[in-house]
Design a protein around this nucleic acid. Structure first.
Lengths: 200, 200
DNA sequence: GTCTATAGTTAGATAGAC
DNA sequence: GTCTATCTAACTATAGAC
C-alpha cells in the first residue's frame, strides 16, 4: 500500500498468502488491483461527504463531517496515503468514472453549503475552498504522519495527537462558520423567513 | 520531479541535457541527486518559517506566513509534490540532519506562538496543530492540484484559484487567531502590561 | 485453481574509448 | 569530462505442469 510503484506483486503475494501467478489469475494485472483499491477508498471518502444533510443544523453538520473525516484518516491512514500518492502523481491511473463521481459529490456538497450561506445560517465562505481545507487539514494527520513523528518525537502518543487535532479543528471551523452578529451579505438577500425575523 | 521512483535517470538525463553516465560522474548515484533536491526544498520551507518575527504584530506575522507559504506552493508546486511524496513514503530517504533542522525550526516557531498566546495577543490555540493546518491547507493547492483540476474542471484559472485560496485562508486564520473580547485564559495569567491595561 | 519456472522489460550503475 | 555500449538486478507477466 505504497503507491502503484511502491509495492511489488511479490510483496502483495506474500501479504495475501497467494502466489504471484494466482493473484494474476483473479486480476488482469497489477493495474486492476490498484484501481480496485482506489475505488474502495474514494467510496469511503465520498460516502462521508454524502452524509452532510441539507436539512440538518448547518454548523453541526459540517463539524460532524470534519470529525468523521479525521476519524477516517486515523483508521484508514494507509489507504489515505495510497490515495494521496495517486493524486500527487497526477491522478493518471484514476478511471474517468471515479473522477465523475468525485466531481458530482463535490458539486452537491458545494450547493448545500452555498444554500446555507444564502440563508445566513453560516458565515460567507468559498464553499470549494472550505472543502479543500477540511480535506487537507484532516488528511494531513494520515498522509504526513511521518513528518509529525519527526516533529513531535517518537515518544508522542498517536491517539492523543488525533484527539488534540480534533479539538483544534473543531475550534478552527466553528469560528470560521459562525455568522457574525450583523451580517450584511445575508440580508436582505436571504429569503429565509427565520433569518429575516431576527432582524426585525 | 515525481519522487525517487517516479523519475528515471534516463528522464533526468534528457531534461538536463547530459548523458546518464555524465550525471553519475557528478553525483555518486540517484540517491544523492534526490537528497540534494530534498535539502533545497526543506531550506525553502523553513526559511519562510524562520521569518516569523517574535517582535512583530502576531496576527499579521502569522497571516504573512500563510500568504508566503501559499505563494511558495504556487511557484514551487513540483518541488512541494516531491517533498510530499518523500513524507508519504515514510521520510526514509530524509537524512537525520534534515530531520533535526526541521524539528528545531518548528520548536522555535511553536515557542514564539505560545509566547503570544500567554501574552493574550492571539487566541488560545494548539501551536503545533496551527502549523500543521497552515502547511496542509496551503500545500494542498500544489500537492493535490490534479484533484482540484478534476473538481473545478479544465476551464478553471489557476491564478484565480490561488487568489481565491488566499482570500479564504486569510479569513480562516484571522477568525481563529483574533482573541475574543473577554478572554479568560489570557488574564490575569498574562503578564503583559498593555494587555492588563485593556482590562482596567 | 494453484503452483514452479522462466520469458521479457526496465532501470541503475559501470567499463572503457575518446 | 563526456560519451556509447553493456552489465546486473528487480519486477511484471506468462507458459505449462499438476
Amino acid at each position: 500500500m505504497h503507491g502503484f510503484r511502491g509495492s511489488t506483486l511479490d510483496q502483495i503475494a506474500e501479504k495475501s498468502g497467494l502466489s504471484k501467478p494466482n493473484i494474476l489469475y483473479y486480476y488482469q494485472g497489477k493495474e486492476e488491483i490498484y484501481q480496485h483499491l482506489l475505488a474502495e477508498i474514494l467510496e469511503l471518502w465520498l460516502t462521508s461527504l454524502e452524509e452532510i444533510d441539507p436539512d440538518g443544523e448547518p454548523i453541526e453538520e459540517i463539524l460532524t463531517y470534519v470529525k468523521t473525516k479525521l476519524e477516517l484518516s486515523r483508521i484508514y491512514a494507509r489507504q489515505s496515503r495510497l490515495f494521496a500518492n495517486e493524486i500527487l502523481q497526477g491522478a493518471k491511473r484514476m478511471p474517468p468514472e471515479a473522477k465523475d463521481y468525485l466531481r458530482r459529490q463535490v458539486q452537491r456538497a458545494v450547493a448545500v453549503i452555498e444554500g446555507w450561506i444564502s440563508q445566513g445560517k453560516i458565515a460567507e465562505v468559498a464553499a470549494h475552498h472550505l472543502l479543500f481545507s477540511v480535506w487537507s487539514s484532516t488528511q494531513h494527520y494520515a498522509d504526513f504522519e511521518s513528518q509529525i513523528e519527526i516533529i513531535l518525537g517518537p515518544s508522542h502518543n498517536r491517539t492523543q495527537t488525533f484527539d488534540d487535532a480534533q479539538g483544534y479543528l473543531m475550534t478552527l471551523y466553528r469560528k470560521l462558520l459562525t455568522p457574525s452578529e450583523h451580517q450584511s451579505g445575508s440580508w436582505p438577500a436571504a429569503a429565509d423567513k427565520k433569518t429575516a425575523a431576527r432582524h426585525l
